[in-house]
């Protein structure tokens, strides 16, 4: 995988093969440009170009209609005085760290249990399923379950006569969003880790068992080191996808025809809320772009640090 191991130039294997493959290889090189250019052009025009444009816009005051006015680093310094942005920043990091830690811990435990269970492929596909369902749907369901007169409160009051708990009031809403995020993401990471663990030859476990290793020691000295490559890639994958979370939070605006309360915004909602979103959009394109760029830079740094922290010599087996 490219993120894990940048493709090194493999040694040429054609050496010593008949001359015809050498000629084949040479004429294949002529395909390089025509084959790569269309993809590259689309990528440059619709991903890289707009990213650089966002950087440029972030130095300006701009509402999309009137002239752009140079603002230097003004947008960036304003961001740090904006409680809404600081909340969004903290929320994004909480999703990354807290939900991430929960997802990986739960996924690891589940993987260890599921791999030895009967019906594991059924279990895996049911756990994985939320990943392919629209996050809007999951958000609606999540809201419905925890509503004032929703499923959970109904069950609690029938079983224990409990008063309805305000799960979704402003104090609890973000925690419920976090738990919901863990719910929808866990199956994906169970699947990824399970695939990695399945590649470990069984005799390692048998040797460990013969040597008297307990479950924790088997995890610590066999499973973790031998699936480390995949786990570190999965951690980076989570970092990237946590920044992209949008729909699950957005749909908590629900029937109000508006965005959810700013207290639960993350970076993506902040950008949308300061540009196109809400009942009366604010079209602060420069300001919104500055926040997007700031988060992109922050997450790039985080990924670089994470890769360094997670780097181990890969073990061939």
């Amino acid at each position: 995988m490219t993120l894990a191991t940048p493709p090194a130039g493999e040694p040429r294997r054609w050496r010593g093969s008949p001359r015809s493959t050498g000629a084949f290889d040479r004429s294949r090189r002529r395909l390089f440009l025509p084959f790569v250019v269309p993809a590259l052009v689309l990528y440059l025009a619709f991903v890289i170009g707009p990213t650089l444009a966002a950087l440029w816009i972030s130095f300006h005051r701009w509402d999309g209609i009137s002239e752009m006015r140079w603002n230097g680093l003004g947008n960036y310094s304003a961001l740090f005085g904006d409680p809404t942005f600081l909340t969004a920043l903290v929320n994004t990091l909480i999703i990354l760290v807290v939900a991430g830690a929960a997802i990986f811990a739960i996924s690891f435990v589940l993987t260890m249990i599921v791999r030895e269970m009967r019906g594991r492929s059924f279990i895996r596909s049911v756990l994985f399923f939320p990943h392919i369902v629209s996050a809007i749907v999951l958000s609606i369901v999540w809201g419905f379950i925890f509503e004032h007169n929703g499923t959970v409160n109904t069950i609690l009051s029938k079983m224990f006569g409990a008063e309805p708990i305000p799960w979704l009031n402003s104090d609890n809403l973000f925690s419920m969003i976090l738990i919901g995020t863990v719910w929808i993401s866990t199956g994906l990471y169970v699947t990824i880790i399970l695939a990695a663990v399945d590649r470990i030859p069984r005799y390692f476990y048998e040797d460990a068992l013969l040597a008297g290793a307990n479950a924790y020691q088997r995890l610590r000295f066999v499973t973790l080191p031998l699936s480390w490559d995949v786990i570190s890639v999965a951690a980076i994958f989570w970092t990237i996808s946590s920044l992209k979370i949008f729909e699950f939070i957005y749909a908590f605006g629900g029937t109000t025809n508006d965005l959810p309360p700013p207290a639960v915004w993350n970076s993506a909602l902040f950008v949308y809320g300061e540009s196109f979103g809400g009942r009366s959009p604010s079209y602060l394109f420069g300001y919104a772009s500055a926040s997007a760029i700031l988060m992109l830079v922050l997450f790039t740094v985080l990924i670089v640090v994470l890769r360094r922290l997670l780097r181990r010599d890969s073990i061939e087996f």
Binding site: V47, P50, T51, G64, F246, S267, F285, A292, L296
Partner: peptide
């Protein structure tokens, strides 16, 4: 690169 970075441009 998330969509919120590129959406405005």
């Amino acid at each position: 690169i998330p969509a919120q970075v590129t959406v405005i441009p």
